[in-house]
Lab assay of single mutants.
Amino acid sequence: NQESVVAAVLIPINTALTVGMMTTRVVSPTGIPAEDIPRLISMQVNQVVPMGTTLMPDMVKGYAP
């Protein structure tokens, strides 16, 4: 099972992602793959992401799977 990126904290809208904001977990449905965390650093979320929420591609500005 592939791990997906999950919010480790509440991430406010338009916040640039940092390593500490993200964790990984096997979830269903799957979100952004864990191995993409290095690509996500400094990208901004386009909505509020509650802690424990799986990051989906459409939540991150400029992210393309």
Rank of each mutant, 00 (worst) to 15 (best):
L10V: 08
P65K: 03
V19A: 14
T54R: 04
V26F: 06
M21E: 02
L10H: 09
N1M: 04
L55N: 01
L17D: 01
M21W: 03
V26E: 15
T54H: 02
A34E: 08
V48R: 09
V26S: 14
V27F: 03
I32G: 00
E3C: 06
N46L: 08
V45Y: 01
V6R: 02
P38I: 06
G20C: 06
P33S: 08
R25I: 03
T53C: 04
L10M: 14
Y63T: 03
M56F: 10
M43C: 04
T30S: 09
R39H: 14
Q44G: 05
P65Y: 02
M22Y: 02
P29A: 08
L17A: 01
V26T: 09
I37R: 14
V26R: 03
A64M: 12
K61W: 07
E35S: 12
S42I: 02
N1Y: 03
V49R: 02
D58F: 10
G31P: 00
L10I: 13
N1L: 06
T30M: 14
A64P: 05
R39S: 08
M22C: 03
S42D: 15
R25N: 14
S42Y: 10
M51N: 09
M51G: 09
I41M: 11
T30D: 08
T30F: 08
Q2P: 15
P57W: 11
T53S: 07
P29W: 05
P29K: 06
V48S: 12
P65N: 09
P38K: 08
N1E: 12
I11G: 00
Q2F: 07
S42P: 03
M21S: 04
V5N: 00
I32Y: 03
N14S: 14
N14C: 13
I11W: 01
P29G: 04
I37Y: 12
G62V: 04
V26H: 11
T53K: 11
T18C: 05
I37D: 01
V27C: 04
A8V: 08
L40P: 00
G31E: 02
V19C: 11
Q47M: 13
Q2T: 11
G20M: 11
G52F: 09
R25V: 05
Q44M: 11
D36S: 10
T24Q: 14
K61M: 09
N46C: 05
R39L: 05
L55I: 13
I13A: 11
N1V: 05
G20F: 11
A34N: 07
L55Y: 01
K61Y: 08
Q47F: 08
P38E: 12
I11Y: 00
V5T: 06
V49G: 00
L55P: 00
L55S: 01
I41L: 15
I41C: 04
V6H: 03
R25K: 10
R25W: 10
T23A: 07
P12A: 13
R39I: 12
S42F: 08
S42Q: 13
M59A: 06
V48K: 14
S28C: 14
A7S: 14
D58M: 13
A64D: 11
L17M: 14
D58T: 15
L17H: 00
D58P: 13
P50C: 07
V6Q: 05
V45H: 01
I11L: 08
T53W: 09
R25P: 01
V9E: 05
T54C: 04
M51I: 15
S28N: 11
I32A: 03
G62L: 08
Q44T: 15
T18N: 10
S4F: 04
S28V: 10
V48H: 08
M51L: 04
G62H: 09
V49W: 01
Y63S: 03
E35I: 09
I32C: 03
G52R: 05
P50A: 13
P65S: 13
G31I: 03
A16F: 14
G62Q: 09
M59T: 04
P29D: 14
I32T: 02
G31W: 02
A34Y: 05
A16L: 08
A64V: 13
L17K: 00
P65G: 11
L40S: 00
P50H: 09
E3D: 11
P38R: 10
G62S: 10
P57R: 11
G31D: 01
S4T: 05
L40T: 02
V48A: 09
T30Q: 13
D58L: 10
P12S: 09
Q47A: 15
R39G: 04
D58H: 10
L10Y: 08
P65V: 11
I11H: 00
A8H: 14
A16G: 08
P57E: 08
I13N: 10
V48Q: 14
S4D: 00
D36K: 14
V60L: 12
T30H: 15
T18M: 10
T54A: 06
R39C: 04
I37T: 07
G62R: 05
G62W: 08
Y63K: 04
T24M: 09
V6L: 05
P50F: 06
T23L: 10
P38C: 07
T18E: 08
A34L: 03
P38F: 07
E3Y: 12
S42H: 14
V26K: 04
P38Y: 07
M51F: 11
A7G: 04
Y63L: 10
T18P: 00
Y63P: 04
M43E: 05
A8E: 05
A7D: 01
P38V: 06
P29R: 05
V45R: 00
M43A: 14
I11A: 00
P12W: 09
I11R: 00
M59V: 05
D36A: 15
E35N: 10
P33V: 12
V60A: 01
V49H: 01
Q2W: 04
N46A: 10
P33G: 06
I13F: 10
P38A: 11
P33A: 06
M21H: 13
I32H: 01
P65R: 05
T30L: 15
M21A: 05
A8Q: 10
E35W: 07
D36T: 08
A16C: 15
A8P: 01
T53N: 15
V5R: 00
L40V: 07
V49L: 14
R25Y: 08
V48Y: 09
N14G: 09
L17N: 00
D58Y: 14
I13L: 13
V49C: 06
I41E: 14
G20T: 15
M43F: 15
P38H: 11
V5I: 12
T18V: 06
T15Y: 10
T30V: 13
A64K: 14
T24C: 04
M22W: 03
M43Q: 10
L10W: 08
M59C: 03
M56S: 08
A16D: 07
V45L: 08
Q2M: 11
A8Y: 09
D36I: 08
T30R: 06
L10F: 13
S28K: 03
V45Q: 01
V27W: 03
P33N: 15
G31M: 03
V19L: 12
M22I: 04
G52C: 11
V9T: 15
M59G: 01
A64G: 12
D58S: 15
Y63D: 03
L55M: 13
T24H: 09
S28F: 15
N46Q: 11
L40Y: 02
A16N: 09
A7P: 00
M43V: 10
S28A: 07
G52Y: 06
D36N: 14
T15S: 07
E35H: 06
Q47Y: 11
L55Q: 00
A16V: 09
G20Y: 12
P50W: 10
M21I: 03
P38Q: 15
V49T: 04
L17Y: 01
G20N: 14
V26Q: 12
V49Q: 01
V60Q: 01
V60E: 01
P50T: 14
K61L: 08
A34C: 04
G20D: 13
V60P: 01
V6N: 02
P65E: 12
T18W: 06
T53L: 07
E35M: 05
P12D: 11
P50M: 07
T23R: 08
T54F: 03
T54K: 04
V6M: 05
Q47V: 15
S42R: 06
L10G: 10
P38N: 09
Y63M: 10
A7H: 00
V5A: 15
L17S: 00
S4A: 03
V60D: 01
I11C: 02
G20V: 08
T54P: 07
V45S: 06
S28Y: 12
T18Y: 05
M56H: 08
V6F: 02
V19E: 15
V27K: 06
S42L: 12
I11D: 00
I37F: 09
M22R: 01
V60N: 00
Y63V: 03
G52V: 02
K61F: 10
I37A: 10
A64H: 11
E3W: 05
A34V: 12
I13D: 13
Y63I: 09
I41D: 03
Q44C: 04
P65C: 08
I37P: 00
M43S: 06
R39W: 07
M22S: 01
I41Y: 11
M21R: 04
V5C: 03
V6T: 06
D58R: 10
L17R: 00
T30A: 10
T15W: 08
E3A: 06
V6S: 05
G20L: 11
P50K: 05
Q44L: 15
E35Y: 07
Q44F: 13
P12Y: 07
T30E: 14
